[in-house]
């Protein structure tokens, strides 16, 4: 990654100098080892601080919706998962494809700082090296070899799109997609929940949602949550209050899940940012799984020219809407 970091910087500098773009969305390094955060580059001179490392987890596509982007030609660095989100925003008519230059970055996975801390690898950490299929955590005293699967984000372990699915320019070489088997396994946690009785499943989600502090980080980071004004923010409608109330916590998460159904690209950002560890990906993946089973395999954001199954209508559609017996599969 260090090798192509310099290449990225050079490309970004040239793009800004030549006015190919007015602005580039990328990442910058903060004060701590894991701290790579979204940054906006407008001048060549500032590009020195740009970073590309195994902590550039933030999906930058949603920033394309910002008011300040209007009328500008914007460049953006995108990983595989980020391109799915980008395509979905194009499909939702929220951004115009031709106003954006996509610099694609193959990605073999991002490191979860929480897992690093849990493994005790953060103490005195100087740097993390990657050699072959191993990561080496270097601290003052020793070098500790770790398998990426021990410290990568869960979402990266089931990733099916390590390479950008759309780009104007690819930087670096495509990585092999070794995750096909685990990708299929992304529904295993959903299947476990499906095995539960309705009562137990309700109890499970009731307990999970009770942890919610209603900070709305899951909604605000979500590329499928792209409404100009969220109905939950309309204080005159009073659809959702600010009170921490169990029924409202559930209401918020369930409504949001249904609203992003068919458009959720499974980027996993909602789960990543939740400060309380609510497994929101299980909720979204349940809907993805149902859509796959009811309408055939579908990956949101893969191809914006294909309309999603929940927004298409065919005259020969024979679904009676009741055949599923309240959503339950008929045996």
């Amino acid at each position: 990654m260090e090798k192509i970091r310099e290449e990225i910087k050079e490309i970004v500098r040239q793009a800004l100098a030549s006015k190919e773009v007015d602005l580039i969305l990328a990442w910058e390094k903060g004060q701590l080892w894991y701290d790579s955060y979204p940054a906006f580059f407008t001048e060549e001179q500032g590009v020195d601080s740009l970073v590309w490392d195994q902590f550039c987890v933030n999906n930058l596509s949603k920033y394309l919706l910002d008011d300040g982007m209007a009328g500008q030609k914007v460049g953006i660095l995108v990983k595989g998962c980020d391109t799915l989100a980008f395509n979905q925003l194009v499909q939702d008519n929220r951004i115009i494809r031709d106003n954006v230059v996509l610099y694609g970055l193959p990605c073999s996975g991002m490191i979860d700082p929480a897992k690093v801390r849990r493994e005790g690898l953060d103490r005195g950490l100087i740097k993390i090296k990657k050699t072959g299929d191993q990561l080496i955590f270097v601290n003052k005293e020793q070098q500790i070899k770790v398998l990426p699967t021990q410290v990568y984000y869960d979402k990266c372990l089931t990733c099916h799109y390590p390479n950008p699915v759309i780009y104007d320019r690819l930087i670096g070489e495509k990585v092999a997609n070794e995750t096909l088997a685990t990708h299929a396994g992304r529904f295993s946690a959903v299947e476990e929940l499906e095995e539960l009785s309705t009562k137990d499943r309700f109890a499970y989600w009731d307990q999970q949602f009770s942890k919610c502090i209603r900070c709305l980080a899951c909604r605000n980071i979500c590329p499928a949550c792209s409404c100009e004004q969220c109905t939950f923010d309309d204080s005159e409608l009073e659809i959702l209050g600010k009170a921490k109330e169990n029924s409202e916590d559930k209401f918020f998460h369930l409504i949001r899940a249904y609203h992003v159904a068919g458009r959720c690209v499974d980027c996993g950002e909602c789960s990543r940012v939740c400060p309380q560890g609510i497994p929101l990906e299980k909720l979204n993946r349940k809907l993805i799984k149902d859509i796959n089973e009811l309408y055939g395999e579908y990956q949101a954001g893969l191809d914006p020219s294909i309309k999603g199954p929940l927004v298409t209508y065919q005259l020969e559609d024979t679904d009676t809407f009741t055949a599923g017996e309240r959503g339950r599969k008929q045996k």
């Binding site: 920033y63 209603r214 900070c215 980071i221």
Partner: peptide
Amino acid sequence: YRRCLGCAMCTYVCPTCHCYDLKDY
């Protein structure tokens, strides 16, 4: 500010933030 998502995580996990709203059910 540009990268701020406008969520309330910082304020809600903060031990000193204390702003509140008054509402009726």
